[in-house]
């Protein structure tokens, strides 16, 4: 069972205190979007084997959504960061690159 540190309150929360929210950094497609773009927004997920950026809510805590960079193979948590970010911060990226030197994220 995972432990993730909530970046808003600093609590090392266990998985039962959290609610999962799926892939992070999805770009919302509104009424102007094409069928293809909207379908992709709703359904296309990277389902990464490796470094995944994902959403969690500290549901049994401060109630804030945050994002985590987690390795779906090793379960390593490279870091957590605020939900308002457009991507993982430098610290998180650097931690990922210790294990995956060629890793980069695309939004």
């Amino acid at each position: 069972m995972l432990i993730l540190t909530c970046p808003y309150c600093g609590v090392r929360a266990e998985e039962t205190e959290l609610a999962p929210g799926g892939e992070a950094h999805l770009k919302r497609i509104g009424p102007d979007g094409s069928d293809e773009a909207f379908e992709s927004y709703l359904f296309d997920r990277t389902n990464t084997k490796g470094v995944q950026l994902e959403r969690w809510r500290h549901a049994y805590g401060c109630g804030k959504w945050f994002l985590a960079a987690r390795d779906t193979v090793t379960m390593q948590v490279y870091g957590t960061y605020e939900a308002q970010a457009f991507g993982p911060n430098e610290d998180v990226q650097a931690t990922v690159r210790v294990r995956h030197p060629d890793w980069s994220y695309k939004l």
Binding site: Y8, C9, G10, V11, C62, G63, K64
Partner: peptide
């Protein structure tokens, strides 16, 4: 402070979230 509660014996002020 974050995740702390301050009290004066009759009243207390608890930190619930960064904006609560």
């Amino acid at each position: 402070e974050q995740v702390r509660i301050v009290t004066d014996g009759s009243r207390a002020l608890g930190w619930m979230s960064p904006d609560e």
